[in-house]
């Protein structure tokens, strides 16, 4: 536990080992373990809604959500990594690829740490309101706040890379585009994270295999055209 907290502290303070360690493997494993542990914690808290509102099957929902949040953060990262590698190479930044990836993993771990730090607020919210839609919205706000913090951390990690070659900034924008594209669909696929009281607890919803972007486009068109 102490080691995990020390690692978290190192990540937030951008300790030298996080991106400039001579031995890359142990550093990445340490960052990955930290990411998984804190994401798992926030997932469990996210899934505690049923328990705090007196619903059945609350433990199963907590376990499912605890598994899903690390899956979301790691899955989007892994799916986007091959494109990032090729874009890095073609932009002439292959030499910095290892450091870039460690900066991205460290920022991901930072996101998980920030989510975990916000988890007490989520518990207080669940204890204050039994409305599912509000719980969803509150978690959205928590993710947005943690993402902002992680963005700040990522920029700090990237500063030496950008000062060495400003092209890293463009590559970071490309990475953000790829990551968000995949993460939105993955979050849609892995829902529910909170667990609606009206529905039975299940790992994936039966209608999981549809598309977040198609849904959003449909909603936007219906709103625009005024049809029900």
């Amino acid at each position: 536990m102490e080691s995990l907290l020390t690692t978290a502290d190192d990540i937030l303070r951008r300790a030298a080992w996080t991106t400039r360690a001579a031995r890359v493997g142990p550093a990445v494993w340490r960052l990955g373990a930290c990411l998984a542990a804190f994401a798992l914690w926030y997932g469990a808290v996210m899934g505690a809604f049923r328990g705090l509102t007196g619903q059945e099957q609350w433990l199963r929902q907590m376990i499912y959500s605890a598994v899903k949040v690390p899956l979301l953060l790691c899955g989007a990262f892994v799916v986007g990594l091959p494109s990032f590698f090729v874009l890095s190479s073609i932009a002439g930044l292959r030499r910095d690829f290892g450091e870039s990836v460690r900066a991205l993993v460290a920022a991901q771990a930072g996101l998980a740490i920030m989510l975990a730090a916000l988890s007490p607020l989520t518990i207080v919210w669940y204890a204050s309101s039994t409305r599912y839609d509000q719980a969803l919205a509150f978690n959205g706000v928590m993710f947005a706040a943690a993402s902002l913090g992680a963005q700040y951390l990522l920029r700090q990690y990237y500063r030496p890379l950008i000062s060495r070659n400003p092209r890293h900034r463009k590559l970071l924008v490309a990475w953000a585009g790829i990551y968000v594209l995949v993460a939105v669909q993955l979050a849609w696929l892995l829902r529910p994270f909170v667990g609606s009281p009206q529905q039975e607890v299940q790992f994936l919803r039966p209608e999981a295999w549809d598309n977040a972007y198609v849904k959003v486009a449909g909603i936007a068109w219906r709103a625009l055209l005024g049809s029900p």
Binding site: V78, V79, S83, V86, Q185, A208, W209, D210, N211, V214
Partner: peptide, 20 residues
Amino acid sequence: AVVLASLGPIVAFFSLTTNS
């Protein structure tokens, strides 16, 4: 081709998780 192949995992992910 190498850029296309690097985008392959993203396409496979969407192909397997969407009906549209």
